[in-house]
Amino acid sequence: MTTRTTARRTAHRPVPSRSSKPSLRVERSLQREGYRLIAGMDEVGRGALAGPVSVGVVVIDEHTRTVPQGVKDSKLLSPAARERMVPAVRRWATDYAVGHASAQEIDEIGIMAALRLAGTRALATLRVIPDLVVLDGNHDWLTDPEREGLLALVDDADAPGTPPVTTMIKADMKCSSVAAASVLAKVERDGMLVAFHDDFPHYNWAGNKGYSAPDHLAALVAHGPCELHRRSWRRCNGEAPPQESTTAGSVDA
């Protein structure tokens, strides 16, 4: 049985890691404060023009050993290296999951609520309940002030409440659990876009993964958006990108 600890919805800022590569230093510090099950969480696809936004979560406990060699922020790894890492990360983690929110859901509820939806879906499929979530960045997008409305969209209506959250800038480069979550989310989302490619080959999603690469933008001008595009985003309709996707140029974002 998991022992839960009482904490504020957003926990304090953890001790930063001095390491140049991800380690468990931050997670161990938090575990010493009573948060036994630590969940590292990261999102991919926020800046894409097509496909889902995806959130990975990797849970570790006090017995989890050093992360498999080579695991780091998914943006710093080649596609082949990321794919090789997945089986090792799954064996290493106490538990793991990836959740998604579709392009249609992003259009309906907005990108930030879609991130919460994808993160909630990931948490709902875990076998364990984390005591604390370490979230990459400086904004807690996971904690939903109107959770009842979000639960209507979650596949598991009995999903537990969101655990306490602590944010950390560049956690995907400092915390092993967050870096591992980034790898799982990136590989799974990329695989979905490659699968979609066969139905919509003119967008070259196998190459650009739905981001605003030149070939994708040219295809949008020539063919217009399809049902897997985020139609509420102006760039999908040949206009300037919305504020939420100004960093969408990188295929590995």
Rank of each mutant, 00 (worst) to 15 (best):
L153H: 14
R116P: 01
L135R: 10
C175P: 00
A159M: 12
L132F: 11
L153W: 13
A159P: 03
K170F: 09
L184K: 02
S177K: 02
H139N: 07
V134A: 07
V165N: 03
M112P: 00
A157Q: 12
S177C: 13
R189C: 09
V178E: 02
A114D: 03
D140Y: 08
A113W: 04
D136F: 02
L123E: 09
L126D: 11
I111G: 07
P163F: 09
D155H: 10
G149S: 08
A179D: 04
L115N: 08
A114F: 05
V128E: 10
M168S: 10
D155M: 14
K174A: 15
R127V: 06
L135V: 14
A185I: 00
A113L: 10
V128R: 03
A171Y: 10
P145I: 06
V134Q: 01
L126S: 12
M112D: 05
N138I: 13
L184Q: 04
D155N: 08
V187W: 00
A114L: 06
A181E: 01
A181R: 00
L153C: 15
L150F: 01
V134C: 08
L132C: 11
L184H: 04
D136V: 05
A171C: 07
L132H: 06
L117P: 01
P130H: 05
I129V: 15
W141S: 14
S176Q: 07
R189A: 08
T125Q: 14
I169P: 13
L151T: 04
A180C: 08
P163W: 11
E188T: 10
I111T: 06
